[in-house]
Every structure is written in C-alpha cells, then in structure tokens.
Simulated scan of single mutants.
Amino acid sequence: MTAIPSLRRALVTGGSGELGSAICHALAAGGYHVIVHGNQSLHRADDVAAAIREQGGSAESCAFDVTDAGVTRAALDALLAEGTIHAVVNNAGIHDDAPMAGMSDEQWHRVIDVSLHGFFHVTQPLLLPMARARFGRIVSVSSVAAQVGNRGQTNYAAAKAALHGATKSLAREMASRGITANVVAPGIIEGRMIGDDFPPERIREMVPAQRAGKPAEVAALVAFLCSDAAAYINAQVIGINGGMA
C-alpha cells in the first residue's frame, strides 16, 4: 500500500511482534501512516498492517534484516523514494540469555547486532531526510535490564545500554533541526517474551506495582513521544516499569 502523502510516516522495526504491533496501532491512531517491519515474518507484518487498515488507519508492511547494512539500506531507499519517514521506532531486539561465564561469541554478537547495529543501520539513513523536513522523532526501545542489570543478560543489557548513550549524543546533534531522540525502557511486559521466567508470584516480588505492564501502556508512551506535543522532550531515557528502577 502506498502511503497517503498528507500523513507523516513512521517506521516501526520489529512491528510484527506483540509490543511492536501495539506501537504500530498507537501510532496509526495518532495519525501516522505506519510502516510495519518484520524480519523473517512478513506475513505477520502484513497482518498487523491489515488490522490497522481495517480500523480506519493507514499502514503498509515490509521485511528486511536490520543486521545487514546493505539490505537495510536498499529497503530504506525504496521506502524513502515514496517520501520522508518522519518517525522511527527502533523496537527490533532479541534475547539469547546465558551467564557470561558460559556465553558464546555467537550469543554475544547476535544480540548486539540486532539491537545496536540494527539501530544504526535503520536510523542513520533517515536523519538527513528528517532534517530537510525539519521534523523527526526517534524512539528506541530499551529495557530495565540496561538500567539495573539482569543475571544471564550481559549481552542484552550491554546492547540496550549502548542505545542510551547513542541516543543522548544523537539528540544533541539533531535537536536544532526539530528532531528528538529518546529511549523508552520497559520492565516486565505481558506477552510471550516473559514466558515461564516470570510467574505471577515472582512479578509481585520484583515489581512494586505487583503486576506486569501491558503492551498498550508502552505503546501509548511511544506514540506520545512521536507526537507534536513531545517536541521539547529530548535525550531522555524514560522507564516504564512499575517502579522497578
């Protein structure tokens, strides 16, 4: 589907997942034409985009591997040929947990490749078009693990914490062009990713709010940061974790 020219366009990496889907729906409700990204699951991205259109929103889908610089650039060039991408939500990320003493090189590099290198591969080509438009919103999804650490996740915490420094620096570089860059750091959020590691009794022990967050709660924060109302919020790491950090 071709974007409606009058709408600002937003790209959500990992938009076919549970959290990504909620973010896509929230952005569409806020008036964006949403580009739903999937990696190897274009059919899931198609489904999210179709659901948005059925609800009266504007959306399309795409799929590419954010760890591959060349493939990502080619995909973004094709999208940019249709117009500026005004907002990007770097939501793509993976877990591959192990204690660092037993972590393989592959586990370390794979997690960092997606969250950190993917952030660069996706965001960098969008910056100059945003600057020419004098408007841009960059939101990267981190984790409470990057703020307080978590056993078995040195790779994940390192990748997400790196986004904090990169985002603060990027915000300083681009702020005069009407572009903001912020980080959202969720805690324990409902969905498949928490699995059996976080039974209800453990969540009550860990989270002062005594419950897991909802994808829609994170999505609402992301959508706000991508709105005109958030123009003076920049270079921030905003936790959404029920009081964990």
Rank of each mutant, 00 (worst) to 15 (best):
P99L: 14
L126Q: 01
S58N: 10
G83D: 08
G195Y: 07
S6I: 12
N39W: 14
G57P: 01
A87D: 07
V114C: 04
P215L: 01
D97P: 05
H37Y: 06
N182G: 09
V89T: 02
L221V: 09
T180N: 03
A245R: 15
R73A: 12
L42V: 04
T180A: 07
V218Q: 09
A22M: 08
A216E: 15
V148P: 03
T154G: 14
Y232H: 13
S115Q: 14
A133Q: 10
K214Q: 11
I112D: 05
S176K: 07
S41N: 14
V207N: 08
A69H: 14
D228I: 14
G239V: 04
A78F: 08
I85A: 01
G93W: 06
N182A: 12
D228L: 11
S115M: 15
Y156A: 06
A157H: 13
D96T: 01
H43G: 00
D68H: 14
D97V: 03
I23Y: 13
I203L: 04
I94Y: 03
F120P: 09
I238T: 06
D46S: 11
M100L: 15
V34G: 00
N234R: 08
L116G: 04
G152D: 07
Q107H: 01
G239H: 06
S16W: 03
M174C: 10
A78C: 07
N182F: 08
A223P: 06
G187T: 06
A175P: 03
R192M: 12
T67E: 02
T123V: 02
Y232T: 12
R137K: 13
C62D: 01
I23K: 08
A22N: 10
A63R: 05
I188F: 09
A220I: 01
L127M: 05
R172P: 06
G195E: 11
A159Q: 02
G15R: 06
S169T: 12
A101C: 05
E60L: 10
G152K: 06
A166T: 03
R9L: 08
S61K: 06
N150F: 09
F120W: 10
T72S: 03
R110A: 13
N90G: 04
M244T: 10
A220S: 12
A145Q: 04
N241T: 15
E173F: 10
Q40F: 05
F135L: 15
F120H: 12
A158V: 13
R9D: 03
I188V: 13
R172T: 13
G136I: 00
S143C: 07
A185T: 09
G178M: 06
R132Q: 11
M103W: 13
A26S: 08
R8K: 11
I203G: 07
V218K: 12
R137I: 10
A75W: 02
Q210E: 15
A133T: 00
I188W: 13
L163G: 05
E60G: 07
S115V: 14
G14E: 01
L116C: 09
M206G: 00
